[in-house]
């Protein structure tokens, strides 16, 4: 509305006041960065603040413990990988890493598969029961699942799933369903229904239509959901802390607390453990920056 007022006013003003036009300060301002060079320095300075601690973590992991204590600000010259060998074998990080990978990849695969099927049905079926089911799934976006840890513990106890990586994997798969269903239903709804009508005329079954036609079309959304769910599952701490008792089943975050407790003064090995825990996420970030950023903004709709 304001724009309409302005655009009618401007020429009117020009015709009634034939004197020299006011200097137009608008044009050069449009593309000039706000705050100028000073703000630019500030922005890059903050970027350094975000990154330097992470770089210090990596750099310190390549230094010996004695070196770290005598010169806290030094660089890894020459770099040594002995702290990695120590963390990986004597610190059990090889076991923790394998467990984390198994649980996270399994959970993301199961969660994305079942959520994709459910989302397709929720987007296409017209019966009223599906509206009700959709709100049931979406209510999960609001539920702080960590507060239900006690009943979950007794549920796992009853099912014999304490110390089970499979149990933990299913738990994560279930907790990821609301977000995945939410994002994927939106995507399926944007696809034209003519696609399925054409497939049905050609004699395709519902499953064939879903698997051969619809799933390939939502592949970008699948990537976003899978990548974005990977991070919180990989990093989760409370569930493995409570549901896993045996050290050979631990995932990285819990393994790390044990290692930190026992080796609090072996700084370089701790730094190596921190890097080992973080590396898969950095690799993921490098190959899938777009999906992670998309997932973060999709969280806004929550």
């Amino acid at each position: 509305m304001t724009t309409a007022v302005v655009s009618t006013e401007a020429p009117g003003e020009a015709s009634t006041t034939p004197v020299a036009p006011r200097p137009r300060r608008r044009a050069p301002r449009v593309n000039r960065p706000v705050g100028g060079a000073g703000a630019g320095v500030l922005l890059w300075g903050y970027a350094a603040l975000a990154l330097v601690p992470l770089l210090l973590m990596v750099s310190n992991s390549f230094r010996s413990n004695a070196d770290l204590i005598t010169d806290p600000l030094g660089l890894p010259a020459p770099p040594t990988t002995s702290s990695y060998a120590e963390a990986w074998t004597t610190g059990n990080f090889a076991t923790y890493f394998g467990n984390s990978l198994l649980v996270t990849v399994g959970a993301v695969a199961v969660s994305t598969s079942v959520a994709t099927m459910a989302a397709y049905a929720l987007a296409r079926a017209r019966s009223r029961i599906f509206r009700w089911l959709e709100s049931l799934f979406l209510s999960g976006l609001m539920l702080p699942i960590h507060l239900a840890i006690l009943p979950i513990f007794y549920l796992f106890d009853g099912l014999g799933l304490i110390d089970s990586r499979l149990g933990l994997m299913l738990m994560y798969a279930a907790s990821g369903i609301p977000f995945s269903v939410f994002v994927l239903t939106t995507f399926f709804r944007q696809l034209p229904e003519e696609l399925e009508e054409a497939a049905a005329l050609d004699g395709a079954t519902s499953w064939q239509t879903f698997w051969r036609i619809m799933v390939p079309l939502v592949r970008p959304a699948l990537a976003t959901v899978a990548v974005f769910r990977f991070v919180p599952i990989w990093n989760d701490f409370l569930f493995p802390l409570v549901l896993l008792r045996r050290e050979d089943k631990y995932t990285l975050p819990v393994g790390l607390t044990t290692f930190f407790g026992e080796n609090a003064t072996n700084y370089s090995a701790v730094f190596a453990g921190l890097v080992i825990t973080t590396i898969p996420l950095i690799v993921l970030f490098l190959v899938a920056t777009k999906q992670i950023v998309a997932g973060l903004t999709a969280g806004m709709a929550k």
Partner: peptide, 29 residues
């Protein structure tokens, strides 16, 4: 999509969600 087909598609997600999220949440109270 038919109602029965739709329910088959939703069933796995619903089962997981009911057992590991809804049931613990409700009993927690």
């Amino acid at each position: 999509m038919r109602r029965r087909t739709g329910l088959v598609f939703v069933a796995p997600a619903l089962a997981l969600f009911a057992v590991f999220v809804l049931y613990p949440m409700v009993t927690a109270f």
